[in-house]
């Protein structure tokens, strides 16, 4: 039985030029969706149906893009959650953080809370779906991977470690259908009270030497590696030395 896979997409922002583009993580989510469901993938956007960026997503080989039409200040969560419920989705893929707006990264969590589904964060790949259970690879810091299994339906946020999105084709993108539905009209009232400004550069932290005496300050300025802190093994046998290193590696859990 094919599974219903839905990828949620948003409008991205190019890091240098600031122009709108297809968001990096969202396009990876579409790529993973295409891998899982092929052309049956449903791609959903809550916002403006006229947005040209949606054509860039559609150019990845999508027949149509579903748009829940709503204003920019409207809350996307109610519209998306009712859509996902109605469509009986099995797997919902999103990015970790949007590239425009508040970019709090809360969308998948709020959807999961409303629908009562599990959320798997920072997914690198979905390896296999079997017997209503998915094997998911999570991207951990330092290039590590963790495997988890989760029951369908679930929401996954896709990390930058997932497979990069394919190139977008201009013509097919233009020809794709925009399936427009009405979104929510609920305004985001909290955000009205915020003030937004272009980001200021963060001040660099200064290295302050809190020395009380001149001798201490001199020492701090001319510090050289001090001996005597670590353990030195000289006269033991090679076996004992290797054992000491091995114990340290085990203690630090770099050897499992």
């Amino acid at each position: 039985m094919p599974h219903k896979v839905i990828s949620l997409i948003s409008v991205g922002r190019h890091p240098q030029s600031g122009r709108s583009r297809r968001a990096d993580q969202d396009s990876r989510a579409v790529e993973l969706g295409l891998k899982l469901a092929g052309t049956d993938l449903d791609v959903v956007h809550a916002g403006n149906a006229e947005e040209p960026v949606l054509r860039q997503y559609a150019g990845m080989g999508l027949q149509k893009v579903t748009v829940l039409e709503q204003t920019e200040t409207a809350d996307a969560i109610p519209a998306l959650s009712s859509y996902l419920k109605a469509e009986k989705a099995d797997i919902v893929l999103t990015g970790v953080r949007s590239e425009s707006g508040e970019s709090s990264g809360m969308t998948p969590y709020l959807l999961a809370e409303q629908l009562g589904w599990p959320i798997v964060a920072r997914v690198a790949d979905i390896v296999e779906i079997k017997d209503g259970e998915a094997q998911v690879l999570l991207a951990l810091p330092r290039g590590q991977r963790r495997q988890v299994t989760v029951k369908l339906p679930f929401i996954a946020s896709i990390d930058n470690a997932a497979q990069a999105a394919r190139q977008s084709a201009f013509g097919p993108g233009l020809r794709a259908k925009m399936d427009t539905q009405t979104g929510s009209t609920e305004e985001d009232n909290v955000r009205v009270n915020w003030s937004e400004a272009p980001a200021k550069a963060r001040p660099k932290r200064l290295k302050v030497v809190k020395a009380k005496t001149a001798a201490d300050r001199f020492k701090a300025a001319t510090a050289k590696p001090q001996g005597g802190l670590g353990k030195v093994m000289k006269n033991e046998s090679a076996q004992e030395k290797a054992q000491a290193i091995f114990d340290l590696l085990i203690e630090e859990k770099v050897i499992r």
Partner: peptide, 26 residues
């Protein structure tokens, strides 16, 4: 050696061989 938390003074070839043996056993 001054920077290290654990320093082992000796022939690296011998020590690496012993270490590899230990890890393989583990």
């Amino acid at each position: 050696v001054k920077r290290a938390a654990l320093s082992v003074i000796g022939d690296s070839e011998e020590i690496l061989a012993e270490l590899m043996k230990l890890v393989a056993e583990h």
